[in-house]
Amino acid sequence: MNLSPKTIQIYLPGGDPRGIRMAEITTRIMRLIEVPRSLLPAFLQMPESDQVAVYFLVSVSEDGAECRVYVGQSSDLRTRLTEHNKNKSFWQRALVMVSRTHNLTQTHALFLEWHSLQTIRQTGRFSDENGNRGSRPHTPAPMEADCLEMFDTSRTLLATLGFPLFDPVAHDPNANQPPEIFVCEASGTQGRGQYTEEGFVVLQGSVGRLQSVPSLQGTSDDSFRQRLLAQGVMRAEGHTVVFQRDHLFRSPSMAALALLGRTANGWLEWKSPAGRTLDDLKRQAN
Score class of each variant (00 low, 15 high):
V202E: 01
M254F: 11
L229C: 05
F56M: 07
G19F: 00
M234A: 10
D221W: 12
S61F: 06
T277A: 05
Q51F: 04
L216C: 06
M22R: 10
F200S: 00
Q9R: 13
S61N: 10
W114K: 04
T196F: 03
P173C: 02
V241F: 01
L112Q: 09
W114F: 14
R21Y: 09
D246K: 01
M1D: 11
T219L: 03
S74F: 08
A230D: 14
N130P: 08
I20C: 03
G238N: 11
R28K: 13
N130D: 07
L257S: 01
L259T: 00
S116Y: 08
S154V: 14
V71L: 06
R209N: 15
K6A: 12
L77M: 10
R235G: 04
F90R: 03
T219K: 00
T27E: 15
A230N: 13
I10L: 08
P164I: 04
I181H: 07
S75W: 08
P273D: 05
N286C: 11
E62A: 12
Q204D: 11
S212C: 13
T160Q: 10
A285R: 15
D146F: 10
P168H: 06
I10C: 12
S251Y: 02
A175M: 04
S253E: 00
L210M: 11
G193K: 09
K282G: 01
M30A: 15
A186N: 06
F224E: 02
G232H: 03
S135P: 04
R225C: 00
T240C: 01
T79V: 13
G14L: 06
D76I: 09
M143S: 11
A230R: 13
L229P: 02
L110F: 03
C184V: 05
R28G: 05
G218C: 02
L44S: 06
R276S: 12
V98P: 09
G19Y: 02
T26V: 15
R192A: 05
W114D: 02
P13W: 10
G205T: 07
N2C: 03
E66Y: 05
